[in-house]
Design a protein around this nucleic acid. Structure first.
Lengths: 340, 340
DNA sequence: TTAAAAATTGACAGCGCTGTCAATTGTTAT
DNA sequence: ATAACAATTGACAGCGCTGTCAATTTTTAA
């Protein structure tokens, strides 16, 4: 039923080793032979047995996606991007959810890698931003690719796919400025996350480039949560507070923005008439809030596919891809922002 | 470094075959021997090599989770539930996203199963509710477990884990009735989904048991989407329409409910004062709407783990578990419902 | 034209495990 | 105590593939 390498060899009239060479894209096979084999492969609809390859060879054809779960939408998008790259390249994907706050996480993952014969790992924030964790993994016999926030890799522990949150945040803030806002609040996400830091930098840069004075009181420390958005917005908009009341709020992600929206509703502040709010991430629910959120979108699927391909080419020891891809999230204007 | 079965055999002073017997939980091993082996396994922290097991034996230690993507939260929860069951049982999980609307889906999945040497499949709605698709899979040499909406399995194609949406919907509707509502609108999800049908049945049953006349005009056909909630609620609440204006709306899921909330906002109807709205699913964002949604929660993680364990025991040919587990989603009262 | 070097191909062992079947040990009934 | 049986154990082949290395063919150089 299912064709083996033997069947292909017979059909092509060569040895199984030659078939093996062809399917592994090795160089020393004559063009003619290669074609014969490829024809046989097609005819028999042959697909190499992953278990056997993994068992026999020194190489492994499995990579793993290790994630902590900040956001189901993000994970699913990433996962599907990685999955389709894997399928295309004949790799197998192991999914490994874990908890970044767990003290033993390094041990846990190191163990998994050792036991599962894994060739490479893909890490997303917050795991990709834990230097000690990453170091421990790089020290093992696996390749690592990280998806991170920033414009350039912070170190050379591993190749990275960078998401330029800074530029995107600047664009968003500029959008607010273009609408006439000058008092723009900022509700931060978890301070430990690079994305928060980067978005903050972009916000600051936009203000600076437009010569708007920076007011520290307009910056609220928070975390990536709805509740943080609620309390942040309350704090910013409270009439008792002695700071300037902002006319716009930059929320570090959509969840915070949704919280801010919620708070505004509580305080009878109408959006966007009295207050503009922007989010970040373009989560599905950002289209389902009232009003719909202006936000920034990043092609997670594609980013993940990129990372997976980068990783696989590392594993294959093909040219040591030094090119680091960078993505800049794109502004999406919806209904939560308006002229001042 | 990594211990093999050979190391264990030496350490325990038995043959590798005996070790194999112990790790596979076969019967004919003397208790004393079994203990010796188990001790060695522990000492060496031995974990069997999955690739080798899959290659050597007739059995396979891989199962697959096939899903169409209705909802990232749902998928992630399910996936993690399955994953942890797999880890516990020493199985490997293949993830296979696909598109239920794709004509070739059966061929695609059948192909995957054939090529990947998979022992079993877990199916969630809508895939689990496509009889022809399921039949094609059952016809292959794999076990199948479905997660479905209903109280009993609709057929005996495969064991099922049932989610009793009907009873849950009745409870939710009853909650509305208890609050004094009698004109209760219903915005349906995709009519093809069993969950829609079941929730509708529960709604009808609650009305009937409280002797409330059923008004067909209060039922809006829709789909599981935000937009459907918007238009459904508009239709129900429009003053021009010649039907009774409901004082409460049962939305078939949270997304629809969010849409209904949105529409109410558009129409200046205050929730829950002028209109109560309930959702279903307890999506994370149901806590982040204004006001927070009353909804129904189901333990997806646990349901998935159940399904995975059921599948694995099928695969292992352990007692042909005829017990079908049933879960009833639980009412969660929040702020979108109030007295009439 | 022929020897030497290079390119191409294949034979064979073995990855870590399980299935088969035969050898050994223990148990029961006589 | 011993034959007859059952329970337990192990030897060995082989799953489908890759690594090693040697055999063969082709190319190059003299």
């Amino acid at each position: 039923m299912k064709a083996t390498i033997n069947d292909v060899a017979k059909q092509a009239g060569v040895s199984i080793k030659t078939v093996s060479r062809v399917i592994n894209n090795e160089i020393s096979v004559r063009q003619l032979t290669r074609e014969k084999v490829q024809k046989a492969v097609e005819e028999l609809n042959y697909q190499p047995n992953l278990a056997a390859r993994n068992l026999a060879g020194a190489k492994s054809f499995s990579i793993a996606y290790i994630y902590d779960n900040p956001n189901a939408y993000y994970i699913i998008d990433m996962q599907e991007g990685i999955l389709s790259a894997c399928k295309q390249q004949g790799f197998e994907l192991l999914i490994h959810p874990c908890d970044a706050k767990n003290k033993n996480i390094t041990e846990e993952v190191v163990n998994m890698v050792k036991h599962a014969r894994i060739a490479g790992l893909i890490l997303t924030p917050p795991l990709s931003e834990m230097p000690e964790f990453v170091k421990s993994l790089v020290a093992l016999d696996v390749k690592v690719v990280r998806i991170m926030s920033g414009d350039v890799a912070p170190d050379d522990l591993s190749p990275c796919v960078m998401v330029n949150d800074r530029d995107a945040a600047q664009t968003i803030t500029q959008h607010l400025i273009d609408l006439g806002h000058t008092d723009i609040g900022f509700i931060a996400g978890d301070a430990k996350h690079m994305s928060t830091v980067e978005r903050y930098k972009g916000y600051r840069r936009a203000l600076k480039e437009s010569n708007i004075d920076f007011d520290k009181k307009l910056v609220i420390e928070g975390e990536y949560s709805f509740d943080s958005g609620v309390s942040g917005a309350k704090q910013l908009m409270s009439t008792e507070s002695n700071n300037t009341r902002p006319t716009a709020i930059f929320s570090c992600n959509d969840e915070i923005a949704a919280g801010a929206l919620f708070a505004a509703r509580l305080m009878n502040i109408s959006i966007p008439e009295q207050l503009s709010i922007v989010g970040f991430e373009n989560s599905p629910f950002s289209r389902q809030t009232w009003p719909k959120l202006t936000t920034a979108d990043q092609p997670n699927n594609q980013i993940a596919g990129d990372a997976a391909n980068l990783l696989i080419s590392q594993v294959r020891k093909q040219k040591n891809q030094t090119t680091i891809s960078q993505y800049v999230p794109k502004l999406i204007i919806r209904d939560s922002t308006a002229k001042c």
